[in-house]
Amino acid sequence: MIISRMKPVSELLDYVAGEEKIFLIGCGICATYCASGGKRELMFVKKVLEDAGKTVTGMLVVEGVCVVGRTKKHLEYYPEAYNSDSIMVFSCGTGISVVADLVPVKVHPGTDTLFSGAIVAPGVFEEKCSMCGKCELEWSQGVCPHTICPKGIFNGPCGGVHDGKCEVNSERDCAWAVMYERAKRNGCLDELERPREFKDWRDNIKPRRIVVRSGKIVHH
């Protein structure tokens, strides 16, 4: 799930200063789940904008704004979106960019996109993967060194580990302390003992794009 957070109201109002008519788009999947861009949040923003003297020309929640075809289709039924001064989108950054690609009006981001997260409990999301393009979880015992270690150390831990806790956030376990314990449990400490070479970042050159046809990647 892509975790996002609604931007502060003051920032949203700054964006629309000088504008009158604003159309709102939310996302029915991730942004609804993490309460940054579902129907409830759009209603809240509508009231904020109206209290500030703006007109909300309409609202639309797409089940996955990131699905280009679906968002395009939905927008066809909302001509008022095109006739507004701007569209404010409450989804992940991908969804916001999709809308900006589709419409000929100014698009404002309503959220800050934070991370790809696990849902560890209702309303509790944790980052586990940075989507770097080359998975290291095999040798790192399922603990991503890029993500769980703030320093992204491939040969850890750093000197700041204190009672097994991270130097950057003492409430969190040190990624390497967890990795080490798992490697011991799994009987594969040798995987951690071998000094790790440098990361190959070539699959992280942005923007990334792949084309899948009949279950196969045909373009990368």
Partner: peptide, 27 residues
């Protein structure tokens, strides 16, 4: 050295590079 994290230092808005850790630097 790997180095302290940027978030603990003089400019906590700076991006932490971290392409090379101390072991890799020795390498």
């Amino acid at each position: 050295l790997t180095g302290d994290h940027t978030s603990l230092g003089g400019d906590d808005q700076a991006k932490y590079v971290g392409d090379v850790d101390s072991v890799q630097m020795l390498k």
